[in-house]
Nucleic acid binder design. Structure first.
Lengths: 165, 165
DNA sequence: TAAGATTGAGGTATCAATCTTG
DNA sequence: CAAGATTGATACCTCAATCTTA
């Protein structure tokens, strides 16, 4: 007999787990596609990728205004990190902080006309890029499967009420 | 008539594109699941998440040795960034640089016994964590779909020969 | 007391330039 | 000259502490 407990998996058994392979695949695919999208986007926007995410979130909000902390969560940033990101974007004239009418603690990040134009220009590059690197790679059925799977994973890992859509 | 060319989509039309929604969902799901996995893993490993990825890649390689630059690509790092990451992990005794027999330019990152033990301990936490946050959230069919979709996306966005498995 | 927002400190990834070897 | 690896400069994100207002 060996020293190994037959019920305790060895390192070799642990590392070859299908669940590790699956999640690694998700990380690699996301990273490679993001790199391709970022490379394309550089042609339509002279700003970092994170700035585009902020512009996009503001553009998808009816009034073009979102409270700082809420916007930070939407673009997957810490509160403190987003303050500095907003500083840089405000210095560039892409957004403005506007006092929140109902709550004097809060300020609303608001898209400026220049920010709107930058977003529009970026989207005219980014949407075809998404088509090329994501949508056209999958058929309609696979796209529907992907959306369904990602909704389940996101819902399972997020506190309730984190996402609206 | 308006000034808008009917063939040119407006900003409002561009931002509501299904492809943007779909990719945003992928990013959010990946981020939320990663946060949950990282939180769990902290109980089994006193090191940053990136260190675990390195240990895992080495553990999945038969000899436990991989050339620095190749390993950098495997864990989605730049070459320069990985040099410093390896410095920190080597200082902690988790890996060793070993001269490459056939090529004196190259050095092989090699798992030490301490690194092996750290990986094993981390995996005993991480595999159940993956089961909880990924595998058990999906049924067998969805897991197969996810693997298939991610392989297609990864292959489409990567230069040929980037991945073996 | 809690929530929104900001600041400074600390850590670390990327990039470009450089050195060495094939 | 190309490839593997390293270094210094730069950028910027996270975290904890702090300030203001609800």
């Amino acid at each position: 007999v060996t020293q190994t407990d037959p019920m305790t998996p060895s390192l070799e058994q642990l590392v070859d787990d299908d669940r590790i392979t699956l999640w690694g695949l998700v990380l690699e695919a996301q990273h490679q596609v993001s790199a391709a999208l970022r490379s394309d986007l550089a042609d339509g926007m002279p700003y970092p990728e994170a700035w585009f995410e902020v512009l996009l979130r503001l553009g998808r909000t009816p009034g073009g205004s979102v409270p700082m902390t809420k916007l930070a969560r939407m673009v997957l940033f810490s509160s403190g990190g987003f303050t500095k990101l907003a500083d840089r974007m405000e210095a560039e004239g892409l957004l403005r902080r506007v006092a929140c009418p109902g709550d004097r603690r809060s300020s609303l990040a608001t898209l400026t006309p220049k920010g709107r134009r930058a977003l529009e220009k970026a989207l005219r590059v980014h949407v075809p890029s998404l088509e090329r690197h994501v949508a056209s790679v999958l058929d309609a059925s696979e796209r529907a499967q992907l959306e369904h799977i990602m909704r389940k994973l996101r819902a399972s890992a997020s506190p309730p009420g984190t996402y609206d859509d």
